[in-house]
Design a protein around this nucleic acid. Structure first.
Length: 465
RNA sequence: GGCGCCAUAGCCAAGUGGCUAAGGCAGGGGCCUGCAAAGCCCUGAUCCCCGGUUCGAAUCCGGGUGGCGCCUCCA
């Protein structure tokens, strides 16, 4: 396995800290709104990483947090009149539902910032004790970036010019200093009691704290294996996380830093500020979750993915091929995945999750299986192996797990279904009577309804086009 | 202004020094079929431009052009 580490900007061979075990922390969403396709992609990408490592035989511990306290959440709380708890719980629930629809496995732990205050306090205290953090007269606590000699060694994105552009804050010692604790701003604010007085944590400290509390190896070396998130988190979020942990614990936070590329719309980054967000739940009204998953999965995780319907539908056609094969193997009980197939898939994904190679392997398998089924339709042992390979794809990529007949009829309501089946029966009668004109008229009629028929020795099947 | 990513057939996209440049979608031809669909077979690019290094480059170096991102909340 080799992975691209954003910090070193290089492909590195993956070496877990403890043999056979992998600990992964991924930055989850700030829950003040519904998840958009960018959140979906990030979740899917790291879900693939987790599934791949699991399939390789590692014992994976996977943690994804929820940021449930921040300026935007507070603003929304004030606007909505709902409580912070109520609001964030609601969005967390929606997030989980969206991700489940996309086939994203739930994390082993899903900690929330407001439930990790004890760990946050400890970390801030450690930084104060070491003289890395300082308090302002207003009660805010800042991280002193000048005390961290390694500041900016993660993102490599600091420079004088940048610092001059930061809005001057007379309370900060250095322009790049960032808040660890924000003192309560008054009755309107949402605050928590702390050893430092009422207030709330800064954004970056929660991840360092939750990693420490839930995931890090505390024995030397203090670390987790992989830290992931969207490319926009590299700076300043991950840079700051990294600095906090380094200064508070004297150790690096993570061995490998992975960042996924953006989902763009018309070539522009999807973001809330641009107002071009495509929410997962809206997309799910139009496309099945598995189709969305496969589309978001089928581009390498570090590249930007320009979301558009044309590409999505082309990618769906690729997924169709898998389901057509599954249809041919209907009712076959899987045995064991073929070792050569498993090995080829994992070898491809082991190259920094090279999904293009992996899907080429999958397509090769589909083609070969179809060929051999044409030649030898009754070889049950062979069919059971093929079925096992498909089941393996389900575990590894999270696709191809549906009933194939259901898959090709997604989104068809009961009324249409009854109508289609009545017409198929009528066509069957016509065919029996050798009235092919009538039979073809029915086929054409169904085609106009968006239904394709396929006559097979087992009977006539239909699909939604 | 600083840092960085990307540019391969109609579309999506592998490939980072050397056999005939993966794979998928779309298109064309064929087999199969009462007709179809599905499946299978055949079929397409010299790799944004210019210069350089090399026996040899899509792949390395330099210079351009175009698109995008981070530097402020952001997956």
């Amino acid at each position: 396995m080799q992975l691209f580490d954003s910090s070193q900007k290089a492909l590195l061979p993956f070496q877990p800290i403890q043999p056979g075990q992998v600990r992964i922390y991924v930055c989850g969403p700030t829950v003040y709104d519904d998840a958009h396709l960018g959140h979906a992609r990030s979740a899917i990408v790291f879900d693939l990483l987790r599934r791949t490592l699991t399939a390789m035989g590692y014992r994976v511990t996977f943690v994804k947090n929820f940021t449930d306290i921040d300026d935007k959440i507070i603003k929304k709380v004030q606007e909505s009149g709902r409580s912070l708890q109520e609001l964030t719980q609601d969005y967390i629930q929606r997030y989980k539902e969206d991700m489940a629809a996309l086939g994203v496995l739930p994390a082993d732990l899903e900690p929330r910032a407001t439930e990790s205050l004890d760990a946050i306090f400890q970390l801030i205290q450690a930084l104060l004790d070491r003289g890395i953090a300082y308090r302002t007269p207003q009660g805010d606590i800042y991280f002193d970036t000048s005390k961290d000699r390694d500041y900016c060694t993660l993102s490599h994105r600091c420079d004088e010019e940048r610092l001059h552009r930061i809005e001057p804050d007379p309370h900060k010692r250095n322009p790049a200093d960032f808040a660890l604790w924000k003192a309560c701003k008054g009755a309107e604010d949402i605050c928590f009691d702390s050893p430092f007085g009422p207030g709330r944590p800064g954004w970056h400290i929660e991840c360092s704290a939750m990693i420490d509390k839930y995931l890090a190896y505390h024995e030397s070396p203090y670390q987790i294996d992989i830290h992931g998130g969207g490319a926009d988190l590299l700076f300043p979020h991950h840079e700051n996380e990294s600095a906090q942990t380094r200064c508070a614990c004297g150790q690096k936070l993570a061995r490998y830093w992975l960042h996924n590329g953006f989902v763009t719309i018309s070539g522009e980054k999807m973001s809330k500020s641009l107002g071009n967000s495509f929410f997962v739940k809206d997309a799910l009204q139009i496309y099945d979750g598995e189709i969305l998953r496969f589309y978001l999965l089928s581009t390498h995780y570090r590249l930007d993915l320009n979301f558009n319907e044309e590409d999505l539908l082309a990618t769906k056609r690729r997924l169709d091929r898998l389901y057509r094969l599954k249809k041919r193997l209907y009712g076959i009980k899987p045995t064991q995945v073929e070792p050569s197939f498993k090995e080829a898939m994992l070898h491809a994904l082991g190259d920094d999750l090279n999904i293009s190679k992996a899907l080429a392997v999958m397509d090769g398998f589909i083609k070969e299986a179809n060929e051999r089924l044409d030649q030898n339709p009754k070889d049950r042992g062979m069919k059971r192996k093929f079925a096992a390979n498909i089941a393996f794809l389900g575990e590894l990529l999270g696709i191809g797990t549906k009933d194939p007949f259901h898959y090709f009829q997604l989104g068809v309501d009961e009324e249409t279904r009854a109508k289609v089946e009545a017409l198929i029966e009528e066509r069957h009668q016509a065919k029996q009577a050798k009235d092919f004109q009538r039979a073809d008229a029915i086929r054409d009629h169904l085609a106009k309804m968006g239904i394709a028929l396929m006559d097979t020795p087992q009977g006539t099947f239909w699909e939604r086009i």
